[in-house]
Design a protein around this nucleic acid. Structure first.
Length: 556
RNA sequence: GGGCUGGUAGCUCAGUCUGGCAGAGCGUCUGGCUUUUAACCAGAUGGCCGGGGGUUCAAGUCCCUCCCAGCCCGCCA
């Protein structure tokens, strides 16, 4: 995230002398570098902000981020821009929406009519159903901006609508219309339904505000097109036009996506852009051809990324199967989620919430690799050396990570002191750790706790703050008292205590399993739990003793 | 139908561009005093590298072919 330590700059040139790079972002950076780009180097991403922004959209930001960092590390000035393609038409109702604080809501909870009555218009010409932004498009763009911010990626968010309004597209639009014959020819190689009537400009009806497609005349001298506001098809449905016949300037409308994308490259001078596999065999090749033949500019260095799935199924804004950046960051530290994006973009990846612990463990290992604390392959080391500094806010070797599942266990109490002391007593936090290390380590507890609650998995315990209502036999009572005495007297470590629990159970003729269960019920109000000895050893001694004696004193 | 991208251990994935002993983590199993108890440690287990064919001294890796999944070839991104 910050300046890299010069000592870890890795040229990653292997001993065969070829320029194979361990980290994919360096391979991309190589390609950009060989084109001798003007500074600042421009890296772009972008989405049409019509549904709830989800973690898949983050590819457009994070993939570029790592390339940007790789280039910055080589001394280049890099600007990362993100176009919100907010002049796009709203073509159907999203199933869910998100408030500015990332809360997902159904259509019932907002002024859905604001959207429904405005199908066919640009997103930025539709009122915000939440009423908080200047338009629905602005609201959606703000969500994306906040996602990038939450991920700690500095990007310049550019509104497409504003680019049109300030005339940034005008020259390119003119060029495209001048060469509309050639434009049509190019497109027919990629799309079947491009016919003689195709015009690469979509005017906006001055009467109803819809983006319409029936252009009847083009006057380039005047810089206008005439149109009829006919119905347009959007997906499987038809959006009616108002029938108005009018004239639009080249700013009063937009380019079709296939032209808009290369136009953005040209206007913004884009050197690199990552895109999803949906573009790979469609708008990317047509876009490059349009760039080179019509606009006589060079398309950016491309990179295709595979899509994520979420809990095994495709992410889909329209169906509502989404997980937002906010939701992820309630369960993961930002650096862990950034780490997720360092993995090979060409690989389809599932974001599996049930197994977030695995991702976090992997991150911890990645961190340990950087600090040379684990035995790994050369390749793993090379990637960690390169990518780790880009992933964390600052490189600090004395940082301590509590294992994620154990952090979830610590979430059994809300008491910060108790969390810290349990972490210390269990050996996951050094006694002399400075305050910032403790804060940092414990930051994971809330995240892991949220994960445990959300997935309701086996780490979702709650420390019973008051004495659970359970009955114990005389025999069991004696055993519990004896255990309490032992703990009070010996202050044993976890393993000693674990051993002693067995001994006491046997001494009192209680089934070992039953005695453990009793212990779990007493402390967790559940029949099972973590290894009881180490667990009780980690909790405050006086609390444990009182609880074992079934005293109704409040927790300290 | 045509094209693009993937398919490696039970799971998550490295390794494929540039051919050289099939890898890691997790899980599982076993052990850690007479002990089922989710956090620890040690060891072990784990594979038709999607199938088949070819090139090569040597193929997970290169070539051909087939199967499976996703995407594009309408709109939109």
């Amino acid at each position: 995230m910050t300046e890299n330590d010069a000592s870890v700059q890795s040229d990653a040139v292997d001993d065969t002398g070829t320029d194979h790079r361990a980290f994919w972002a360096d391979e991309v950076a190589d390609k950009i570098e060989t084109r001798d780009p003007a500074e600042p180097i421009t890296i772009k991403g972008g989405v049409s902000p019509s549904g709830v922004p989800h973690i898949g959209h983050l590819n457009e930001i994070l993939r570029g981020y790592f390339v940007a960092e790789a280039l910055r590390d080589r001394g280049y000035t890099v600007e990362q821009v993100f176009t919100s393609d907010d002049k796009d038409r709203l073509r159907k109702m999203p199933r869910t929406l998100a408030s500015l604080d990332g809360e997902i809501v159904g259509l019932d909870d907002v002024d859905a009519g604001a959207l429904g009555q405005n199908l066919g218009k640009p997103l930025t010409d539709i009122p915000d159903p939440f009423g908080c932004c200047s338009s629905f498009g602005a609201h959606q763009t703000e969500l994306l901006r906040k996602s990038a911010e939450a991920m700690g990626v500095p990007i310049n968010v550019v509104s497409n609508t504003e680019l049109y309004a300030e005339g940034a597209f005008e020259a390119v639009t003119r060029t495209v219309l001048e060469h509309r014959e050639r434009a049509r020819e190019i497109l027919t190689d990629y799309q079947e339904k491009v016919d003689d009537t195709y015009v690469p400009f979509i005017p906006q009806c001055e009467s109803c505000g819809h983006l319409t497609e029936t252009v009847t005349a083009i006057d380039l001298a005047e810089g206008t097109v005439d149109y009829v506001c006919d119905a347009v098809t959007a997906g499987d449905r038809v959006i009616d036009g108002c029938g108005h016949e009018g004239t639009a300037t080249l700013r009063e409308g937009k380019l079709p996506w296939r032209f808009e994308w290369p136009a953005q490259w040209t206007i913004l001078g884009v050197d690199f852009e990552p895109f999803g596999k949906d573009h790979a065999s469609g708008s990317w090749p047509s876009g490059t051809e349009i760039c080179q033949e019509l606009l006589t500019t060079e398309p950016p260095v491309p990179m295709v990324y595979e899509w994520f799935t979420y809990n095994g199924a495709a992410l889909s804004s329209s169906s509502g199967h989404v997980i937002t950046v906010n939701e992820v960051l309630s369960m993961l530290e930002p650096e862990v989620f950034r780490y997720f994006f360092t993995k090979d973009p060409k690989r389809a990846r599932d974001f599996d919430v049930q197994r977030l612990d695995q991702l976090v463990d992997e991150f911890d290992r990645f961190e340990s690799t950087y600090f040379d604390r684990v035995d790994v392959t050369d390749r793993e080391r090379a990637i960690a050396e390169r990518a780790y500094p880009m992933v964390v806010d600052s490189v600090r070797e004395d940082r301590v990570r509590i294992p994620y599942t154990f952090a979830a266990v610590l979430g059994m109490t809300d008491d910060r002191k108790l969390r810290a002391s349990m972490a210390r007593r269990s050996g996951h936090l050094p006694d002399d750790a400075p305050e910032w290390v403790v804060d940092d380590a414990l930051a994971r507890v809330e995240k892991a706790r949220t994960w445990a609650v959300q997935t309701d998995n086996e780490y979702n315990y709650r420390l019973a703050e008051s004495l659970p209502d359970i009955s114990v036999s005389e025999n069991e009572a004696a055993a519990l008292d004896s255990l309490a005495d032992f703990i009070e007297r010996e202050n044993p470590d976890g393993e000693t205590l674990q051993q002693h629990i067995y001994d006491i159970a046997r001494e009192h003729g209680i089934e070992v399993g039953d005695f453990f269960e009793l212990g779990y019920r007493l402390f967790l109000e559940q029949p099972q739990g973590p290894r009881l000895g180490p667990f009780l050893a980690a909790v405050s001694q006086s609390f444990v003793v009182r609880r074992l004696r079934r005293e109704r004193t409040p927790m300290e």
